[in-house]
Design a binder for these strands. Sequence first.
DNA 1: CTATACTGCTTAAACGTTTAAACTAAGTAT
DNA 2: ATACTTAGTTTAAACGTTTAAGCAGTATAG
Lengths: 339, 339
Amino acid sequence: MRNKISLKDIAKAVGVSTALVSYVLNNREREARVSPETAKKIREAAKELNYQPNQLAKSLKSGKSLAIGLILADISNPFFGHLARTIEDESKKKGYTVIVGSSDENYKNSERLMNTFIERQIDGFIIAPAEGSEAQLKYLNELNIPFVLIDRYFKEIESSYVVIDNFRATHDATAKLLELGHQNVAFVCYNNQLQHTIDRYNGYSKAMEEAGKKVTSKLLCKVKFNNPGDFHLKFRNLMTKGNKIDAVLFSTNTLSTLGLKTLMDLGIKIPDEVAVFCFDESESYDLFYCPVSYVSQPLKEIGQRAVQILVEMIGAKSGFHRQVILNSELVIRESCEKR
Amino acid sequence: MRNKISLKDIAKAVGVSTALVSYVLNNREREARVSPETAKKIREAAKELNYQPNQLAKSLKSGKSLAIGLILADISNPFFGHLARTIEDESKKKGYTVIVGSSDENYKNSERLMNTFIERQIDGFIIAPAEGSEAQLKYLNELNIPFVLIDRYFKEIESSYVVIDNFRATHDATAKLLELGHQNVAFVCYNNQLQHTIDRYNGYSKAMEEAGKKVTSKLLCKVKFNNPGDFHLKFRNLMTKGNKIDAVLFSTNTLSTLGLKTLMDLGIKIPDEVAVFCFDESESYDLFYCPVSYVSQPLKEIGQRAVQILVEMIGAKSGFHRQVILNSELVIRESCEKR
DNA sequence: CTATACTGCTTAAACGTTTAAACTAAGTAT
DNA sequence: ATACTTAGTTTAAACGTTTAAGCAGTATAG
């Protein structure tokens, strides 16, 4: 059916061996001493026949696929969508193709994706790991397949990663809220053991401690992943049970969006009745009645650094790891004012 | 560096030929009459050595890569992110891997992606085409590479596609606004020649005509792509130059978000001063002070049908095309009320 | 005791590349 | 005349699979 043109077809058309065609089309005619006329004929024939090299065969020969496997926690989450975009751009610059997969925060999916990608001989991975994927990452290490974690990492796993200083991000956001005079600053996070969740909690907790505040369960809201019902139940409880909360720090972008919506539904005025600090940028904030304060992650830099490190690792003969911790930025707007 | 295990390694370990190993690991031991003991030994060795088949070599041999190239107009746009998700899910079910690329609405990028994917021997494409990509699609047809267009299509290109009835969508939304008693219904769209833009305009225009309304330039706002400056200039003009506009229909999700934000910035009350109808669902709407009416596209079905058709096309010996036009749904909420 | 069939395996070619090595024909140096 | 160089090309093996064809050796049928 499909008219696939190979080196052999060009060779036949011109009347030379495939070797010559290969040399010419890889611009190695000089070192292979191909005559200019032959080279010209080969190039013309290649164009004429719409030749497209078979990257699979090349990869098989070279052992390099020039492909990077990107495993996102959730491709439909714009945070990861933007990250994917920067990673694609940077990879393109370095001559790599990106194969994207979404684990949907499920380590089983992630494992299947990993195997699919390994079978396709990708040269390395960039991964936003789901909870519970430690074993898989160890496995990658055993196989000597280079990978870089983004957004999240595991303390006990030897690996390269590019993340932000999550402790500092929530610490500074909390301190800002306290500095503005808020008394009862609540913290909303997911109920998981991912390091960035822990770090963000610790940052909040430390800032509270420094201000002489006690973190009680009345200030905490830990909700299940991918479970809006659980969120609504717990967050409504937090905000309506007379806990006197006058400020809330949300620790992820999904929690931020859910939280703002719930506050709006509850008719709680921001910032008059409660101040709000969100995590990550979102187009949604643009439509909120009150300009939203948030922790801004350097998405572009995360993507670029991850690709750069991965490409270095792929090129290196001996394994090494590089850890990058970037700074985030507080974007302070009306939502965290003290009224 | 990387410890890649091949059939040969297993064959050596067990003391048989690679052929036997291949038969066993493909569960074809019966037809190849491999003895149960040998088969067992082979499986054990494969497990022991962590064997992962080389899909590249398989594809080279079979001429099938079991991979689908997905070219999105913009991966950071959640509309396409969600679509990508359903396409990945459905492809997985059918045994295909998806390779995603984002053209960023630029046909040059799209062309480069296409070539990269062809070189990787993808079996077919799913494409949300950028403006100006007609020539590339014709080229795909020449090469007999199956593809399915989504979201957009071209009248003059023979192809399969899965789209919604855009004419009907805007027609019905406009009719709804008129039925509610709005007099001057404005229409905001991109200034391009993509069929879905034209269809959406025609739907609006027809509904206006049916109501005995004339569509004048005072009601139209055609803005440049990827150019918020142009949008703000023209849309502000539209809304503030005494055009008496009492309802606006936005024709894409990006225009909807930009529009809502601008209306909010201008202090124009929705729906009291102006009614609003948006296109596509968005998390952002959740945070808008007024529940937003919108045209809801069946994302899941679009993705599923696209994959199903593509897989059929890949499997067919002779070329065929299938066009699917799905219905969208109007979600009517407060934003389009007549006050 | 000779065909024939079956069992359990190996061989070898092929997919589309790359690339070291070999080959031929001509030119140059001694 | 002989050896060596150079230019321009071909040959062939290799990457990791698949699979048709072949080959022993044993079992069964007549």
